[in-house]
C-alpha cells in the first residue's frame, strides 16, 4: 500500500506542476491587469506603467514564469498586491473557515443523504421513495444563492433563531453549512437510493433473508456497506464542486473563508493570491481523491488499491 501511495503522490507532484502552470497562464491571459485595478479609473498611464514595473509585471512572461516556478518550489507565492501580505499566509489564514464549512456540509450531506437514500432504495416505488425522489430533484434544482437568501429570511429575519451572517460561533455555521449541503445531500441520496435498490436485488440479500434476518438487519448489515462505494466516490469527487459552492455561500453569508478571498482576488487580478489559493485547492482535491481511493479498498476488499483510478 505504501508503494502505491508514494506512486500516487509522485504523480500528484506532476499534477500540481500542471495546476500551477495552468493558473499562471490563465490569470495572465485574462483581460485587465493588477496595476490598473489597484490604481482605479483615476490613474494616468504613467502611474499605471510605474506600478506595473514595481510589481515586476513588465518583464517578459517567460521570465515571470521562471521566477514563479522557482518560488513555488520553495512554497513562496509572493506578496498580495492588494493586501500587502504573503499570499500563501493569507490563503492559509482563510482555509480553516472554509474547511469548517465544507466538512460540516459534507457531514450533513452524507448523514442525511445516505439515510434518505437508504429509506427510498429499500422499497423502490413506494411512497417514501417517491417523496425522497421528488424532494431531491427539487433540492438539486434550487440555486444555492437563492436557497441561502431564503434560509436567511426564514431563520434569521422571521424566526430570529439564527444569525444571518458572519462567523465565530456554532450558530453562525448552521445556515451556510445547510445551504452548501442541500444540493449535495440530494446527490448523495439519489446515488444511495439507486445503489441500495440494485444491491437489494443481489442473490446474497436473498440468502440473508432466508437465514431469517430482519429487514433492517439485511438493509444495514448487508446492503448498506456495498452501496456506499459509489457514495465514497462522489464525496471524493465532489470536493471541487463544494469549493465552487463555498464561493457563493461565503459571499451570501459574509463567511470569512477562502472562497470570498479568491473571488476578491480574481476580481482585482491579485495574481499571487489566485495562484496560491488554486495551488492549495488543487492539492486538497488531490488528497481527497487519494483518501477516497484508500477507502474503496477498506469498504470492499475485492478492490485492489493499485487498480483504482
Amino acid at each position: 500500500m505504501i508503494r502505491v501511495i508514494v506512486k500516487r503522490l509522485l504523480v500528484g507532484l506532476l499534477v500540481m506542476w500542471g495546476a500551477a502552470s495552468l493558473i499562471f497562464l490563465i490569470v495572465r491571459v485574462a483581460p485587465g491587469d493588477p496595476a490598473t485595478i489597484l490604481l482605479g479609473p483615476d490613474a494616468d498611464p504613467e502611474q499605471i506603467a510605474e506600478l506595473t514595473a514595481r510589481l515586476g509585471l513588465d518583464q517578459p512572461k517567460l521570465t515571470q514564469y521562471a521566477h514563479y516556478l522557482a518560488d513555488v518550489a520553495r512554497f513562496d507565492f509572493g506578496e498580495s498586491y492588494r493586501l500587502g501580505r504573503p499570499a500563501m499566509s493569507e490563503v492559509l489564514e482563510r482555509l480553516p473557515a472554509t474547511a469548517e464549512l465544507m466538512l460540516s456540509s459534507t457531514a450533513i450531506a452524507v448523514v442525511f443523504g445516505v439515510t434518505l437514500g437508504l429509506l427510498a432504495g429499500a422499497r423502490p416505488g413506494r411512497l417514501v421513495d417517491r417523496v425522497v425522489s421528488a424532494s431531491t430533484i427539487a433540492l438539486q434544482s434550487f440555486p444555492t444563492f437563492w436557497v441561502g437568501i431564503m434560509l436567511i429570511l426564514v431563520f434569521a429575519l422571521w424566526l430570529g433563531v439564527l444569525p444571518s451572517a458572519d462567523a465565530g460561533t456554532p450558530a453562525h455555521l448552521v445556515l451556510p453549512a445547510v445551504t452548501l449541503a442541500l444540493p449535495f445531500t440530494a446527490t448523495v441520496a439519489r446515488l444511495t437510493r439507486t445503489s441500495v435498490a440494485e444491491t437489494m436485488r443481489e442473490p446474497y440479500i436473498q440468502t440473508a433473508r432466508s437465514k431469517g434476518l430482519t429487514e433492517p438487519q439485511v438493509l444495514i448489515g448487508h446492503a448498506l456497506r456495498n452501496s456506499l462505494i459509489p457514495v465514497v466516490t462522489i464525496v471524493g469527487l465532489h470536493m471541487g464542486g463544494l469549493m465552487g459552492g463555498a464561493v457563493i455561500v461565503e459571499n451570501v453569508f459574509a463567511w470569512p473563508g477562502l472562497g470570498s478571498l479568491v473571488v476578491d482576488a480574481v476580481a482585482s487580478r491579485d495574481y499571487e493570491v489566485v495562484q496560491a489559493a488554486t495551488f492549495l485547492i488543487a492539492g486538497i482535491v488531490m488528497l481527497f481523491n487519494l483518501v477516497a481511493d484508500l477507502l474503496y479498498s477498506r469498504l470492499d476488499p475485492r478492490i485492489k488499491l493499485d487498480t483504482v483510478s
Binding site: 450533513i108 439564527l162 453549512a177
Partner: peptide, 25 residues
C-alpha cells in the same frame, strides 16, 4: 456501524445544538 453512527452524531451535534442556542434575536 454503531461506531460510525456515533461519530456522525458527534460531528453534527454542535451544528444541531447551535440551532437551538446562541441565536440572535
Amino acid at each position: 456501524l454503531r461506531s460510525r453512527a456515533l461519530t456522525a452524531m458527534i460531528i453534527l451535534a454542535p451544528v444541531a445544538l447551535a440551532g437551538c442556542t446562541d441565536a440572535t434575536t
